[in-house]
């Protein structure tokens, strides 16, 4: 869409100033995390000192974070949980998405609809009975409590995205392989799946960020400190009653955000594809 502008002043007022304000408002909380995590406590808790910068940057908050809490353990838990639940969801979503997009069977339309509906079910609706289910299976307070429940929102998403992706791959390519003697499964695994790799990557990155960030299930299902994920650990272990340890809190918030921002920045285009693909009905 071509957009034309008036003179430089008009362009500054209608474009550059709003854009600068927008970027500033978007990024300011991240700046706040960074600056808080490196300011010494004497400055943090002094209403007179200018809060926007510091002349005495320190890494004590980071040291405290690792010494006084199990942050390293939480980071490992988060990585492990996000990776395994993403892998499970990609596996299920890939197979289901292929079946719904390619195979002809009577139940395809209603099943597609059911999966779409589960996609819209928010965790808030189910966390109480799900806590009971997790306990019944004896996986409460273990990583499996969330590894097996995150796929409830990741699989519908992956299925939906990959179904759309498979529909864009011409059927003729598979037909061709079938004629060359490939079985139905071989045509699927060796021809269609490799062609879907960009879609798989998009779904995987999106699913990874979703499970890295999840809060409610992890809060309810994981209770002992050594089982927690970063969002839960930082939130529950660095706030004691009314006392907030802001330095280590912001250091933890920063370190917990960096990995997922890094993954995102490496695959921005794939992420955006997943984001926009996710909402296309």
């Amino acid at each position: 869409m071509a957009v034309r502008y008036g003179g430089p002043l008009k362009r500054a007022v209608t474009f550059h100033v709003p854009l600068a304000l927008l970027v500033g408002a978007t990024l300011f909380p991240f700046y706040w995390m960074v600056i808080t995590s490196i300011r010494p406590d004497t400055e943090l808790y002094n209403v007179r000192s200018n809060p926007f910068f510091t002349l005495h940057p320190t890494l004590t908050h980071f040291a405290d974070l690792f010494e006084l809490t199990m942050f390293a353990r939480w980071a490992w838990n988060t990585l492990f949980i996000a990776t395994v639940s993403t892998a499970i969801s990609l596996f299920c979503g890939l197979l289901a998405g292929y079946a719904l997009a390619r195979l002809q069977f009577r139940w395809a339309p209603p099943l597609g609809m059911v999966i779409f509906i589960t996609y819209l079910v928010p965790p808030t609706l189910l966390f109480i009975p799900l806590g009971d289910v997790v306990k019944t299976f004896g996986i409460g307070d273990t990583p499996w409590a969330v590894i097996l429940t995150y796929p409830t929102f990741l699989i519908p998403f992956c299925t939906w995205l990959l179904m759309g992706y498979f529909k864009t791959i011409p059927r003729e390519i598979e037909d061709c392989a079938r004629i060359d003697g490939a079985s139905r499964i071989q045509a699927m695994v060796r021809i269609s799946f490799p062609l879907a790799i960009p879609g798989i990557l998009s779904a995987g990155i999106f699913a990874f960020t979703l499970s890295w960030n999840e809060f409610l299930y992890a809060l309810v299902f994981l209770s002992s400190p050594q089982q927690k994920t970063i969002p839960i650990g930082v939130f529950t272990e660095l706030v004691r009653g009314d006392v907030f340890y802001w330095g280590p809190l912001m250091a933890g918030a920063l370190l917990g955000s960096v990995p997922v921002a890094l993954v995102y920045s490496l695959f921005v285009e794939h992420y955006v594809t997943a984001l926009t693909g996710a909402v296309k009905g």
Partner: peptide, 26 residues
């Protein structure tokens, strides 16, 4: 790409930053 950052990072962690920005004293 940077515009999407608030959406990418864990909501809990960015909300903690906001809570600090809304702190009663500081």
């Amino acid at each position: 790409a940077s515009m999407l950052l608030p959406w990418i990072v864990p909501t809990v962690l960015s909300t903690l930053a906001w809570q600090w920005m809304f702190d009663a004293t500081f």
